[in-house]
Amino acid sequence: MKIPFGRPTMVGRELSYIAQAVEHGTIAGGGMFMRRCEAWLETNLPVQRALITHSCTAALEMAAMLAGVGPGDEVIMPSFTFSSTATAFVLRGATPVFVDIRPDSLNLDERLIDAAVTSRTRVIVPVHYAGLACEMDAIMARAEAHGLMVIEDAAQAHLSSYKGRALGTIGHLGCLSFHETKNIISGEGGALLVNGPGLVERAEILREKGTDRSRFFRGEIDKYTWRDIGSSYCPGEIVSAFLLAQLEEADRIMARRRALYDAYRHGLAPLAATGAITLPEADSAQANGHIFWLLAPDPGTRSRILERLNAAGINAVFHYVPLHSSPAGLRFGRAQGELRVTDDIAARLIRLPIHLGLTDADVADVVAAVTACATTAG
């Protein structure tokens, strides 16, 4: 592709830090680079404890364990999300309850939560799509009213905020992703942000294969042993070294992503004014420049635009097949009512290339191509 959808980019001392990790004598999990990444997050986010993991999926699985969900329990979440949001809870035996999304933000519609709550509901999982915040005040209020835990799936929302509060730090637990498709990357990687009282010690145990190894490394105990369930959720030091270099350049990365996002909004505004496409209402001050999406007027037009863009060397893509209509979603979950907005959005959404390797000239080329495709899509 002349303009790929995404491309991982080094921004600073990635290779130097990787070499340091190897020279230090250990590249397994739990080393100095992992600890430095956690310190960066705890310094830059208002969070009680940040635990680096080998993926956001791992962080979600840990969150499900910490929430104590099991067979017969229900977990409210949007259907318009990645499978990991659901599988983390299905693995514990819980049932995802899929709720429709808002047409403006594409996030969980907080007005539908009450109708989805039953005596078996234990958790609400808001997903901050494209880095734009869910209505967290309303979600936290509904959770408190029903005695529920809130686990933020902030995979796409690192360094986005809601009313001045960092996403992932508002709920009881938050989950971040550093997958190569995200703004700040380590190839594969994630973090569990622990905000709820009394959860830190168990979270550390779950991450270390059910042992109190973290306390041993801090010199708090003279030996470690098996304490609880858990798994191997620490990333290796090479991954953590790469991540630290990216975190240190976070301000520069975020500024560029937001500039690209705003360039798309500005460049495509004349086309949106004709009604040929629909653009996100949010500007970069609200989102974090992770995804730039637009909506075609109908599924057929979406298909034609995507076909023409990719034929021209511009790798534009669609996004999720809604979980409630997927084979596993039909098997393991249930939909709360008709998810009409979810189905409609999923059939019309287009994501445009956005990554640090994208130049201003590339953005202009994409804008021109989208305009040409949309105005002749019929």
Rank of each mutant, 00 (worst) to 15 (best):
T85R: 02
P353K: 14
F33V: 04
P8E: 06
E38G: 07
P4E: 12
A63I: 06
T53R: 12
P270C: 08
A285L: 12
T342E: 12
V150C: 01
A19D: 11
A273S: 15
T375E: 15
V239D: 10
A88C: 07
R257K: 13
A312S: 13
L330I: 13
S326E: 04
G313V: 10
C56S: 08
R120W: 01
G168P: 00
D114Y: 05
P103C: 09
L271G: 06
A312H: 02
S231A: 14
P280L: 13
F89L: 11
A58T: 08
I238E: 02
S105K: 12
T342V: 07
A245F: 06
A316D: 02
G196V: 00
E188Q: 14
L91C: 03
A154T: 09
A335H: 01
M65I: 07
Q20Y: 04
T278W: 00
L159Q: 13
Q336T: 00
A377E: 09
F89S: 12
S214A: 15
A130N: 09
L159N: 14
V321A: 12
L167R: 05
A64S: 15
S160I: 02
R111Y: 08
L60N: 04
A138I: 02
H24W: 09
I221G: 05
A328Q: 11
M77W: 03
T278S: 14
T274G: 08
N195F: 00
A311M: 01
D73V: 11
R142L: 01
H172K: 11
V125M: 13
L192P: 01
V370W: 01
A269Y: 08
M65S: 13
Y233V: 06
L294E: 00
L339Y: 08
L192R: 07
S105N: 02
T211F: 05
G378H: 14
E152G: 08
I305M: 14
A312I: 05
A145C: 04
M136T: 03
S84Y: 12
A328K: 11
V239E: 13
S231T: 09
A67G: 15
Y233N: 01
D360H: 00
K223P: 00
P197A: 13
D298M: 01
A361F: 04
Y162D: 07
A19V: 05
W293I: 02
K209M: 13
L15V: 04
I52Q: 05
G357T: 11
I345K: 14
A377Q: 09
E74G: 09
N44R: 15
R334W: 00
I124L: 15
V127Y: 14
I314T: 04
L148P: 01
S160N: 11
A64M: 12
L66W: 08
I139K: 05
D109N: 14
E307F: 03
G147V: 06
P78S: 11
R49M: 07
P197H: 09
T43A: 15
R122Q: 09
V90E: 11
V200C: 10
Y320K: 10
L112V: 03
G236D: 12
A259M: 03
T211S: 13
C175W: 01
E180P: 00
R92H: 03
A141M: 05
A133K: 04
H355A: 06
T375L: 15
A372Y: 11
D360M: 02
T43D: 15
L108K: 01
I221Y: 06
I291R: 10
D262Y: 00
Y261P: 03
M136L: 14
R120T: 00
S177C: 06
